[in-house]
Design a protein around this nucleic acid. Structure first.
Length: 768
DNA sequence: GCCAACGTTGGC
DNA sequence: GCCAACGTTGGC
């Protein structure tokens, strides 16, 4: 192989099959190894092919031992690497020697041959000898170096070109090319044979100054098609693969041709300096076949075709993309991308470690384990057996955690039972048995909830549909269905709206709020913005059902039917009755009444739920008049709709007028909390239909009037740090055979710090 | 498709 | 070496 290289270096530029090496010594090493193994110097490239093909599958997760691993062709599983892929270092090393503008790689101390060749190439370019008219007499010399056996899989080499992100883990020699982020594998870069033949025969005169890197590739690819030796050696001039060509701005003067003339990317890059000064010459348009006067090397399309082609954006497979932007790369490589050479090692490691953390949510910011959840109980420090080896549930990121992602679907369907065999109930549920209709807390399965309940749930809630997914563009639409006994909320998903569920908590909160707000607003324009009511039929509206008594719909109302008992007019906003109706959409109040003690876990587990979009609006308002409008509130409402609100908070204009801020996620501890801003921007907080007493500390921490978006946001953020008081169990209520229920003290604080279960009043209630 | 179990990996 | 916990996988 060394001989081969030497000979190649002595040969004209078109002679070097090994010139894939041109970028780095590592590649050379690979080739040499192969040569040794194969003991077939003339067929070196033959053995390279499998290695080049393999990385398509193996690179993704592979570390960087690719070169050494290349012999392990039969290893099905790629061992996950630790730390930074070596390629990154190599890439960095290579980058330091890379001339990005020219797309040339600086000489490498170990690649003497390559260095020579590169120099030669450069000199040829700069010396004005760039117009490379292939010497037919030479070309045959090249072909003999491309034995038939090179064609390990002709189809794969020529028919499956695809851009792949360069992987720092790549065991392919290609992947070690530092200056490319996307590239086509060498033997995959070839365009269709027809196209090549055509272009070759017609435009060989435009062949760029030979670059060593081109030859090998072309040899390989050409062998995939022409095996009878009749294949024009000119093909070797085509499809330079190793030289990254970007159709982007880096191609200053030849950017047009770069896109439209994939067969000559080399020209555009290397020939930029001098070739463009070449005199016009007659050529034949590759597209329309008509003659045209080429203005520079590489012009294979006439002026007319040149104007059309770039728009098609047919990214030819042999185009090698130079790394320019990170964003594109990320999109191409899914989420578990392996950083490229630009990535700092530490950054990469940090990313990998923390990719299950957004580092922003409450869970991520939480430092201590709860010690109660199943994962905590599994930890040795809590006496567990360390079988699960998972982070405390309360510390599972709400947005990035796989745990949440998995649970998203399940949890979004409250009816689906969640069996957790090994989980012991941490908190005894107090009060009456949970209403299974609205069970939404998976922790319920941990306690006395039986499988029977699960079955019943499935049966009873067969119409209760809620769907969602982690990403994508969907929005939630709620419709209402009715069972024999109950009415349900059904969620359908539209595909238009962006769903930022897991992507960015901030965006999630803001965009959803905007979306919901605007939609609500628009939908109700005909009704008058002041007449909005979000009302779920079938839910008893009686205030006495709130609080400690779980909602149980024993006599459901027809869908859309106005609940007669609903207070109308200003009462709606004053007694908070409306709020509980709204809450019902996203969060069954029963959950909080029955299992309020689980609020914290509940929240931590399920805040992944995307904010639903309420499209069903039932207006209970009759004729509104302009007196219900308030310009100030409307302006604030509009501003809120354009502002980043805490996640899942939405603004709603309702009759009153009153601007209401709702936490639409049932996973939030504030799901039952409503902030009402009335005329004059006075506001009041209601929790589960009960007004938060003015003596509550919340009021003291915020202005009396929420006049600005900032005030509102501040309040919401403050509320998000709080939870709902769980009340206490009243053992003196009702007959002994009836389930116990939790009640609250008369002056219950309602909102308490998240880490507390009860307010002081409920902790020591005064039994009357 | 979910999840318990566990190999693995990075930090300390 | 220990610990935390991520990622994978086989069983269900």
């Amino acid at each position: 192989m060394t001989d081969e290289l030497n000979r190649a270096s002595a040969e004209p530029e078109t002679m070097q099959p090994e010139e894939t090496v041109l970028v780095g010594a590592d590649v050379v090493t690979v080739i040499e190894d192969n040569a040794v193994e194969n003991s077939a110097p003339g067929q070196v490239t033959v053995e390279l092919l499998p290695d080049w093909l393999k990385p398509m599958e193996e690179d993704e997760d592979d570390g960087g031992e690719g070169v050494n691993r290349k012999t392990n062709n039969d290893v099905p599983k790629v061992k996950r690497r630790r730390g930074r892929p070596p390629i990154a270092r190599n890439a960095r090393l290579g980058l330091t020697r890379l001339d990005f503008k020219k797309g040339l790689h600086a000489d490498h101390p170990k690649t003497k041959t390559v260095h020579t060749l590169l120099d030669r190439t450069r000199s040829s370019l700069t010396s004005g000898t760039a117009i490379p008219v292939p010497d037919p007499t030479r070309m045959p010399e090249v072909l003999p170096q491309t034995p038939q056996s090179i064609i390990h899989s002709p189809t794969s080499t020529s028919q499956r070109p695809r851009l792949i992100p360069i992987s720092p883990t790549g065991d392919s020699s290609l992947s070690k090319i530092p200056d490319t982020e996307f590239h086509s594998p060498l033997r995959l870069t070839r365009v269709s044979p027809l196209g090549i033949d055509k272009s070759v025969t017609q435009n060989f005169i435009h062949s760029p100054a030979v670059k060593v890197g081109n030859v090998t590739q072309q040899i390989i690819s050409s062998t995939g098609v022409g095996n009878d030796g009749t294949e024009p050696p000119l093909r070797l001039w085509l499809c330079p693969s190793l030289e990254p060509i970007s159709p982007t701005k880096s191609q200053d003067t030849f950017s047009d041709q770069t896109v439209s003339l994939p067969n000559f990317p080399e020209i555009t890059r290397n020939g930029t300096a001098t070739l463009k000064e070449s005199l016009p010459f007659l050529s034949k348009c590759e597209s329309c076949g008509g003659p045209f006067s080429a203005q520079k090397i590489g012009d294979t399309l006439c002026y007319r075709c040149c104007r059309i082609k770039p728009e098609k954006k047919h990214s030819p497979p042999n185009i090698v993309f130079r790394k320019k932007q990170h964003t594109k790369y990320k999109k191409m490589v899914k989420t578990d991308f392996v950083p490229d050479g630009d990535e700092d090692e530490d950054d990469w490691a940090a990313k990998k470690r923390n990719r299950r953390m957004c580092r922003q949510c409450v869970a991520c910011l939480r430092e201590d384990d709860c010690g109660k959840c199943d994962f905590c109980m599994d930890k040795p420090k809590f006496g567990g057996s360390n079988k699960k080896r998972q982070k405390c549930r309360l510390r599972q990121c709400k947005f990035q955690s796989k745990l949440h992602a998995h649970r998203a679907n399940g949890m979004l369907n409250p009816s689906l039972p969640r069996r957790r065999k090994n989980v012991k109930p941490k908190l005894k549920r107090r009060g009456r048995p949970r209403k299974r209709k609205f069970k939404s807390d998976p922790w319920e399965d941990d306690d006395e909830v039986s499988d029977k309940d699960d079955d019943d749930d499935e049966e009873d809630l067969r119409h209760y549909k809620m769907n969602g997914r982690k990403g994508g563009r969907r929005k939630w639409n709620y419709t209402f269905k009715e069972d024999e006994e109950d009415a349900f909320v059904e969620t359908v998903i539209d595909d238009d709206e962006p769903s930022i569920t897991e992507e960015d908590p901030d965006i999630l909160g803001s965009e959803r709020s905007v979306m919901v707000s605007s939609e609500m607003y628009s939908n109700t324009s005909g009704l008058g913005a002041q007449g909005l009511y979000y009302n779920v039929p079938g839910v008893p509206a009686a205030p006495h059902m709130l609080g400690s008594v779980p909602l149980c719909n024993t006599s459901p109302l027809p869908m859309g039917e106005v609940i007669s008992s609903l207070p109308m007019g200003d009462d709606v906003t004053q007694n908070g009755f409306l709020q509980i109706e709204m809450v019902r959409v996203g969060s069954p109040p029963s959950h909080y009444t029955e299992e309020a003690q689980n609020t914290e876990q509940h929240v931590s587990e399920f805040q992944l739920e995307p904010t639903p979009v309420i499209t069903q609006i039932f207006s209970l308002a009759g004729g509104e008049n302009d007196s219900d409008r308030d310009q100030g509130l409307m302006e604030l409402f509009t501003s809120l709709g354009q502002t980043v609100l805490p996640a899942h908070w939405v603004g709603v204009m309702a009759k009153g007028p009153v601007l209401q801020l709702l936490q639409c996620s049932k996973l939030s501890t504030m799901a039952d909390t409503v902030v009402q801003i009335e005329k004059g921007f006075f506001y009041q907080v209601s929790v589960q239909n009960q007004p938060l007493l003015l003596m509550h500390a919340v009021y003291s921490r915020h202005p009396t009037c929420l006049e600005t978006v900032g005030d509102v946001v501040s309040l919401l953020l403050d509320l998000e740090e709080m939870g709902v008081c769980q009340g206490y169990q009243n053992f003196h209520m009702g007959p002994p055979w009836e389930p116990r229920m939790s009640v609250r003290a008369a002056l219950c604080d309602l909102l308490i710090p998240k880490d507390e279960e009860q307010c002081p009043k409920c902790t020591q209630p005064v039994e009357s």
